[in-house]
């Protein structure tokens, strides 16, 4: 997960070995599927950051277009993060009624609804 890097690097002063151990632990403990989801999350985050930078540095003129694009990244990010926590086997007892397949269907439905509103709002 990308926020791992950005947030912890700011607090990197205590020991760089801690970050290293975190990375190590993440690499060791996380199943491949979740890593795949995390890669998607990193991509979404980069895309959102890029849009936000453009908005700040250049212009926010079609504000609805900016909001549509930016909230599509945010919405997709949280939906994917929700999917990640739902399918994470560590959280199995928290999500008793949501199987991984159900979680994926929910994710798909949520994304479709989200992108319907995004397209409508782009103008």
């Amino acid at each position: 997960m990308a926020p791992t890097k950005s947030a912890s690097s700011s607090k990197a002063a205590p020991s760089s070995s801690a970050i290293h151990s975190l990375w190590q632990a993440y690499n060791d403990e996380t199943p491949d599927r979740l890593k795949f989801v995390d890669a998607f999350l990193v991509f979404i985050m980069l895309s959102g950051a890029l849009q936000f930078l453009y908005c700040i540095l250049v212009t926010n003129f079609p504000f609805n277009a900016f909001l549509a694009g930016f909230s599509s990244t945010i919405g997709q990010f949280v939906l994917t993060a929700s999917l990640r926590s739902q399918v994470n086997s560590e959280n199995k007892d928290e999500f008793k009624e949501v199987s991984p397949e159900r979680a994926f269907a929910d994710f798909a439905l949520g994304s479709i609804v989200l992108h319907f509103f995004v397209f409508n709002f782009l103008g």
Binding site: S71, G75, L79, A81, F117, F121
Partner: peptide, 22 residues
């Protein structure tokens, strides 16, 4: 705090806010 709260709130807020702006 549970992950359920995260899932419920995030999906409500992200979609709900964007849709309310329509």
């Amino acid at each position: 705090y549970t992950n359920r709260l995260y899932v419920a709130y995030s999906s409500w807020y992200a979609i709900g806010t964007l849709s309310s702006m329509q």
